[in-house]
Design a protein around this nucleic acid. Structure first.
Lengths: 183, 183
DNA sequence: TACAAGTTTCAGAAGTTTCTGAAACAACTA
DNA sequence: TAGTTGTTTCAGAAACTTCTGAAACTTGTA
């Protein structure tokens, strides 16, 4: 094959992976992670083989420092594994293949925590407001308490949905996938 | 009643509302909104009556500029209404009472958009990669394409879940609430 | 042990977001 | 119309986040 054409194909592939990585990066950023985490993970996931830190730096045009910190963070979230090849001093990195395991971990450890924290504040404030009843003010306070209860209900709903999602996914992702395909 | 005690009760109430507003503010920030939007909306929601911009500034200790901008933004999302009292020059602001309407709007207009955008990139990259097949490289490319497909599947799952949530909620929030209470 | 290759850390650069406060503006009243 | 009160806008201050690059450190090799 014409080497010029072959080179062009390699460049094209690289560009496409880059675009996908950027798209996931944007999604992840939206989800409150660093954009780089999304980009790095995506490249590793798509390539499907262990890559060295140096290659990631080169492909994504980032510094060694950024690579090191991002990889450590991804490892902390359990979405990237580190490995070595015999006779090679470098460390290699590989993406966790099970996407759902990643997501459900984030849902459990981060979103759920946020909701529970808010819920605690709601409940504590509720009991304290209840005790506060000023004689002439009962009905005004009552209205506030009612609305606070609705906020708490919503938080509990969110919690229940998250828990259900995590449980369902743990049991088996397939039913959810079928659900998606039905639409 | 002893005025000192009465004053203390007012301060206590104020502090409690403040705490709840901060909790919602943190949640909203986590969701990619400005913290202030959460704080302002919460105070309006809990009080349940129209408040003036000045009162919001005073209660939340923010500048008039911040109040104006935040209220405009909240109005744009349809979660705060603006009204006037006859014979009063000031504008008053009131929170949208239907929380679910707010949330589903955000889900539809923001999250859904994000996912669709990513999905488009995935699909475009997929067809282009498909065309790219280098003779000796078919299987390597094939692996990448497979993984890209899994990413796309996940995005479609997310989209389906969001759509279902929005639809369900539009029909009636009650079933979801019962779902939450069952747990 | 000395060396080299690879990795981590961290001070501060660069970029971004959010908020303030004052000036411009708008709306009502006398 | 002029004055008063209330609202919006926006330049830049402040705070925060993310990234770089060089120095410190670690690990394996000779």
């Amino acid at each position: 094959m014409n080497p010029a054409i072959q080179w062009e194909m390699i460049a094209k592939e690289r560009e496409l992976l880059h675009e996908v990585a950027d798209a996931v990066g944007a999604l992840m950023e939206f989800w409150g992670f660093k954009r780089l985490m999304g980009r790095v993970w995506t490249l590793l996931y798509l390539r499907g083989e262990p890559l060295s830190a140096a290659e990631l730096c080169e492909q994504l045009e980032i510094s060694t420092g950024a690579a090191s910190m991002t990889l450590a963070e991804l490892e902390h979230w359990g979405v990237v594994r580190r490995s070595r090849k015999p006779g090679d001093r470098r460390e290699y990195f590989e993406a966790e293949g099970d996407i759902w395991r990643m997501i459900s971990r984030v849902l459990r450890e981060r979103e759920l925590l946020q909701i529970e924290r808010a819920l605690e504040v709601f409940e504590r404030a509720r009991t304290q407001l209840d005790r506060l009843g000023a004689p002439g003010e009962r009905s005004r306070l009552q209205r506030i308490i009612e609305r606070l209860d609705r906020l708490a209900d919503l938080a509990r709903l969110g919690r229940a949905l998250l828990v259900a999602l995590v449980q369902q996914g743990k049991a088996d992702l397939a039913p959810l996938m079928r659900f998606a395909k039905r639409r």
